[in-house]
């Protein structure tokens, strides 16, 4: 964990360059990002190109920094005392960490779904209307429309359409997570970050959420952190492998899982450590 700075950044930079030359448009560009929790160097010289309207998966053993990295993409780490970021992350060419950027605007465009479902202590309807309301929408008809559309979008509508006024806590874990996805969709973000969204769910709910991602990627750029390699292989087009705060390898999902270039990646995807 200590000698990582000796890693040669040149090959990663090459990789980043090769990523930009892919046919799909770039949504988020991450250049030489280092991240610290007080004295702890959590991310080391990360370079990634996240393509528009695709699913990008980030895999790696726990504690490798993949969640931390995800949270730098909508500045969620700003909420934690003593964190520091160097390098540059840009969304559609604009620096996220520019002084003029307002995190409220940013997070409206880059939404996030968390590891454990975290519905608010209010009704299903109000959970979804929460985002549009704070962003200034009060029109009842439009809100109804958004609630229905996003619930349909997250494949939850049929199950809850008769109890929209019920407390969100009354839903099952899988339903709650889909509600949280619907809640994120309701503010019409461009990017959705998902931090191990299925880790607390049963296989059936997991399956439904994976299906949902397949649909969503037509309209949204999705970045998902997962510790489940099968899931990464099923849902993503691009995969990045994190180890001890570094991004060891990044490329097409097929390539990462079938012919990894790095020894560490090969060991990890073949289940030698985890």
């Amino acid at each position: 964990m200590m000698d990582v700075t000796t890693q040669k950044p040149s090959s990663l930079q090459d990789l980043a360059r090769s990523q930009t030359s892919t046919p799909t448009a770039t949504k988020i560009l991450v250049e030489n990002v280092d991240f610290y929790y007080s004295a702890f160097h959590a991310l080391k010289t990360i370079n990634i190109v996240i393509p528009d309207r695709q699913v990008t998966a980030l895999i790696g053993p726990s504690g490798c920094g993949k969640s931390t990295f995800l949270r730098t993409l909508n500045r969620m780490n700003d909420l934690i005392d003593g964190t520091k970021l160097t390098g540059k992350i840009s969304l559609d060419g604009e620096d996220l960490y520019d002084k003029r950027v307002d995190v409220v605007d940013l997070r409206k465009r880059v939404g996030m779904v968390f590891q454990k479902p975290n519905p608010f202590p209010m009704s299903i309807y109000d959970n979804i209307a929460y985002g549009p309301r704070i962003h200034g929408l009060t029109n009842r008809k439009k809100l109804n429309e958004i609630v229905e559309r996003t619930l349909r979008g997250s494949a939850l509508w049929e199950e809850v359409k008769d109890k929209l006024k019920a407390s969100a806590f009354a839903l099952s874990g899988g339903q709650q997570q889909r509600l949280c996805i619907a809640r994120t969709l309701a503010v019409e973000p461009e990017v959705i970050l998902m931090d191990e969204p299925c880790s607390a769910l049963d296989p059936n709910s997991t399956f439904r959420i994976e299906q949902l991602m397949e649909d969503l990627k037509k309209d949204y750029t999705i970045v998902i952190v997962t510790h489940n390699m099968q899931q990464a292989a099923r849902v993503s087009q691009r995969t990045g492998f994190f180890l001890r705060g570094e991004m060891k390898e990044f490329g097409d999902t097929d390539q990462i899982f079938t012919s990894p270039k790095q020894k560490d990646t090969e060991d990890y995807v073949s289940g030698k450590f985890g």
């Binding site: 559609d92 604009e94 003029r100 605007d105 465009r109 979008g153 019409e188 649909d215 309209d219």
Partner: peptide, 19 residues
């Protein structure tokens, strides 16, 4: 399902609501 909205600029002028 909606199409993603037209991109707004992060650095541009904030809407009245945000202000």
């Amino acid at each position: 399902m909606s199409v993603a909205p037209p991109h707004s600029s992060l650095l541009g002028k904030q809407s009245g609501n945000v202000a």
